[in-house]
Design a protein around this nucleic acid. Structure first.
Length: 289
DNA sequence: AGTCTATCCTGCCGGC
DNA sequence: TGCCGGCAGGATAGAC
């Protein structure tokens, strides 16, 4: 669901329908979704603005707004930052068509409607004048060139935290969530409880490669779906869940070694592990002794 | 500095 | 069948 690949998929499918469109109407069905602003204030800030850019940063979708015209010239009019959190979705609809269920905010465009749908109401659809500052706390983008194996090894060594907790920390590395962290750790054969400063350079390299490979392939497959919960804005489920090696497979055999996968709690999150493939350093030492 | 807890919410599943 | 506790992909604030 909404981790980096699902957010990227959402953006790609929605972008053609919203880029260059002008916001003609606003409907706020759940006020907390738009943050601290009142509905009236939010509306006045976005009404009449044109969506000039639509891009992703980590798990955020950022829509840059402009005002003006080709004749008078355009000027920046702030941004909308969208975070899907647990259950948020973006849907494109037709004007006048029936509104989807669990709708929290809708932007009526000069052509079509953008709906923000969110069963659990954790998601946010917020206007800001300072998008860059609002996103400044985020760590590097895992598919960018600044995220290298060398950087990862150094950054892990500078901290002493449970590996999984650190990878989930968006200020450390931005975009991973519970599913893809479990998958990446298994592929790199690292136990989620490993202290981050005990990850060797070789293992950091494997982890770096696993993160990039898994995220890249998940984007190619348009993310992961289960229980019919997450679907792309086109209504199709993603297909990456078929590739899961550990997530949701507790009690089933590890596809690498055959022993039963377990589920444990790490950083207060359900965590899927193969205890044979992913061994804690402490155990490695004990085994050698 | 790092870890844990509570909080924001609804839906769904399993157990009784 | 119906009720109820527990759990779910995320992020943050505050306590220890």
């Amino acid at each position: 669901m909404p981790e980096l690949p699902e957010v990227e998929t959402t953006l790609r499918l929605v972008r053609p329908g919203i880029l260059g469109r002008t916001i003609r109407g606003v409907e706020v069905c759940w006020p907390r979704t738009i943050g601290g602003l009142g509905e009236h204030e939010f509306s006045s800030l976005v009404l009449g603005a044109r969506i000039a850019q639509a891009r992703r940063r980590a798990k955020y979708i950022r829509l840059d707004l402009e005002r003006g015209s080709a004749r008078t010239g355009y000027e920046a009019a702030g941004s909308i930052l969208i975070h899907l959190r647990m259950s948020g979705r973006l849907l494109l609809g037709r004007r006048g068509a029936a509104a989807p269920g669990w709708r929290r905010v809708s932007l009526e465009l000069d052509r079509g409607v953008l709906h923000f749908v969110d069963v659990r109401k954790f998601g946010r659809f917020v206007w800001t004048a300072t998008p860059a500052e609002d996103l400044a706390h985020l760590g590097p983008e895992p598919l960018s060139h600044e995220f290298t194996a060398e950087w990862l090894h150094g950054a892990l060594a500078r901290r002493r935290r449970q590996l999984k907790a650190l990878l989930l920390d968006q200020s450390f590395l931005a975009g991973l969530g519970n599913i893809y962290v479990d998958e990446a750790l298994h592929e790199a054969r690292l136990h989620p409880l490993t202290p981050s400063d005990r990850v060797s350079k070789a293992r950091a390299r494997e982890l770096h490669q696993a993160i990039q490979r898994i995220l890249g392939e998940a984007i190619e497959r348009e993310g992961s779906s289960f229980d019919g919960f997450y679907v792309t804005p086109e209504g199709n489920p993603g297909a990456y869940q078929d590739q899961f090696q550990v997530y949701g497979r507790e009690g089933l055999p590890c596809r690498s070694c055959g022993i039963r996968l377990i589920k444990m709690l790490v950083a207060q999150r359900g965590t899927h592990v193969c205890t044979r493939c992913q061994v804690l350093p402490r155990k490695l030492l004990a085994r050698k002794a």
